[in-house]
Design a protein around this nucleic acid. Structure first.
Length: 606
RNA sequence: GGGCCCGUAGCUCAAUUGGUUAGAGCGCCGGCCUGUCACGCCGGAGGUUGCGGGUUCGAGCCCCGUCGGGCUCGCCA
């Protein structure tokens, strides 16, 4: 029986009671076939949904005979009439549950081998198997929803920026390796042996050049490549919503991002976010949350208890303070009910990220008196010091106090980890909440203890704040002191959702003299600067407008808005944690002939 | 490179902590079944316990190594 599949009348999610009586052609995959010996029911699935189609041996014996042979994932086309199911047989769990299609003709378009895993919503299969058969994994409704959500996000964003006069301009994928930043993916040049293109880590320089060219509003949904170790929210190739504007201050950029994200939230998850998005200074974020991407869905804050700690006899605290460090803590509400096993587990885990241990006390009530229990409680001797501790950190009876002592950087790292880990394990994070914030006033430079040198916190093209510009001492030969450099703040901003950095941007340097100065501060010699960025410095000298922009992580945005726990779930064909694609088995060997042509040879290491 | 978790049937898991022939659910195959919708019932097939070595009378279980997967620290301007 040949059914004209090209005359498909609608998808499998479309039919309703109002369509009863219509003659339809449906195509799709057999989700499940229920053979009653007589009647055969098939749940037919396509991107639009599922419709039950019915094969009746009395009325359509030929079609029924074919239906008996159907197996899951066979691809079929059917022609039939939409019929009501009758009150007793309605399936309220299905959008199409009031109707079914009485099949007159069926055409089996493609038989399916038994799939390696079932095509069901709540699949538990290990991810490597899913990635190896990604085309099957993508048939599952949750994956289809995630991919569709991603499409709606990009569509909304494109529409927003188009409405506001931004031009979508493509930039090269084969470009130049740059010294700073992540490891590059390299592409050998066949025509110039020994030379390499790099895949772009971002279109950063090109979008700045576009501003200098006069395309004063640019946006691109751009693929970026970074050859670094992977994480749940990091892939070697990822997508940025890349935006740049000329003649703007940071407020203009932030305004458009807020408006655009509000559009996305409204369209994709049906949530109106209150604007403007709250802002936190970098220093405040580090002080209160220990991290520059705070999760504001719950209100645990880090407290400094150095003053109280100094009065204890606890050596860990005293040594940390003597070395110029600090003692800080977080309070876990009702954390007193955590078991020894749980807190021991935290201790072991935090050692794994470099902490020496995990000092902690529980706050309890014994005979009407507030006391500290367990661990280092004995070092807080006396009611006065206990009272001071509690008022310094805001803990109450029943709470657990987790401490970190040492250099401020480490203390921040450890408490930020504890804050997040404990909040997740104790279910302190409210579901369906979207906590947005901006983090602003980043330092322009950070300090690398290993190389004893400064580095760019954002990137080398980030403009210092006007009031901090004098610290750069333009026009002088010698460099500013380390102290002065670390005081320089940047016109940089990050946007954060639920503890995930969704994007960051800055107002750029548009003066060639400032840019050269920053390069030299970063230890990039004029010769190196000329080789690597000569074209940018030259461009800046031909009349560059003040400009700035932002890059937003599309994958992370899609992950958060579709409730996924990994960006792999919002990419059609992602790589695994070792940057391998289990389906194509890329990366793979290439032939000697290919290597010869490129002037390459492989050094095999034992 | 470091830390943690994991690897048993196609998939998800179990195996009384070293003891008989490694089990279950789902899936698969065959049969029966005319209103199911995770259809039901009956029967069946399916295993190099990731791989290699060691300890032992005996190893899925203990030890060493190795490969693979996930999370994470470093790294990712």
């Amino acid at each position: 029986m040949a059914v004209p599949y090209e005359e498909r009348t609608c998808d499998c999610g479309a039919l309703r009671a109002a369509d009863v009586g219509k003659s339809v052609v449906l195509c799709g995959w057999v989700s499940v076939a229920r053979d009653h010996g007589g009647m055969v029911f098939v749940d037919l699935r396509d991107r639009g949904g599922i419709t039950q189609v019915k094969f009746n041996p009395d009325t359509d014996p030929k079609a029924h005979e074919v239906a008996r042979s159907l197996r899951s994932e066979d691809v079929i086309a059917v022609r039939g009439e939409v019929a009501p199911r009758g009150p007793k047989n309605v399936n309220p769990k299905m959008p199409t549950g009031e109707i079914e299609v009485n099949v007159r003709e069926i055409d089996v378009l493609g038989r399916a081998e038994t799939p390696p895993f079932e095509i069901v919503d709540d699949l538990q299969t290990n991810e490597d198997t899913r990635l190896q058969y990604r085309y099957l994994d993508l048939r599952r409704a949750p994956m289809q929803r995630a991919i569709i959500t991603r499409h709606r996000i990009t569509k909304t964003i494109r529409d927003y920026f188009d409405r506001h006069g931004f031009l979508d301009i493509e930039t090269p994928m084969l470009t130049k390796s740059t010294p700073e930043g992540a490891r590059d993916y390299l592409v050998p040049s066949r025509l110039q042996h020994g030379r390499f293109f790099a895949l772009p880590q971002s279109p950063q320089i090109f979008k700045q050049l576009l501003m200098i060219s006069g395309f004063d509003r640019y946006m691109q949904i751009a693929r970026c490549f970074r050859d670094e170790d992977l994480r749940a929210d990091r892939q070697p190739e990822f997508t940025q919503i890349d935006v740049e504007m000329a003649f703007v201050q940071r407020e203009n950029v932030m305004h458009h991002v807020e408006q655009c994200m509000a559009d996305v939230m409204r369209t994709v998850v049906g949530v109106d976010i209150p604007l403007p998005i709250p802002r936190i200074a970098y220093d405040d974020a580090m002080r209160d949350y220990g991290i520059d991407r705070p999760d504001l869905r719950y209100d645990i804050k880090i407290r400094d208890v150095s003053a109280v700690a100094a009065r204890t006899e606890f050596n860990i605290f005293r040594e940390a303070l003597a070395a110029g460090g600090c003692v800080r803590c977080i309070v876990v509400p009702k954390g007193g009910e955590m078991t020894r096993k749980e807190t021991d587990g935290l201790t072991e885990e935090i050692k794994g990220i470099g902490a020496g241990g995990l000092p902690l006390v529980k706050v309890a009530n014994e005979g009407g008196k507030t006391v500290l229990l367990t661990g280092i409680a004995k070092f807080f001797a006396g009611d006065a010091i206990i009272g001071d501790l509690l008022s310094a950190c805001g803990a109450a009876v029943g709470d657990l106090i987790l401490f970190a002592a040492g250099a401020a950087d480490d203390v921040c790292k450890h408490l930020a980890w504890l804050r997040e880990t404990v909040a997740r394990r104790r279910n302190l994070i409210p579901a369906n909440r979207y906590a947005w914030c901006w983090v602003v006033d980043f330092p322009l430079f950070g300090w690398d203890e290993e190389t004893k040198s400064v580095f760019s916190m954002h990137h080398p093209f980030t403009s210092p704040k006007d009031e901090d510009l004098p610290l750069l001492q333009l026009g002088r030969e010698e460099l500013p002191s380390r102290d002065e450099l670390l005081r320089v703040r940047a016109k940089a901003y990050d946007i954060v959702l639920n503890g995930t950095e969704l994007g960051g941007g800055s107002i750029r340097i548009h003066r060639a003299d400032v840019q050269s100065r920053v390069f030299s501060i970063l230890g990039i010699t004029p010769e190196q600067a000329k080789v690597k960025f000569g074209f940018l410095l030259q461009a800046l000298s031909y009349g560059a407008p003040p400009h700035g922009g932002i890059a937003l992580g599309l994958d992370r945005t899609a992950m958060l808005l579709s409730g996924a726990s990994s960006i792999r779930d919002v990419l059609a064909f992602p790589k695994n944690a070792r940057a391998v694609c289990p389906m194509t088995e890329a990366p793979s060997d290439v032939s000697d002939a290919q290597l010869r042509e490129l002037g390459l040879s492989i050094i095999r290491q034992k």
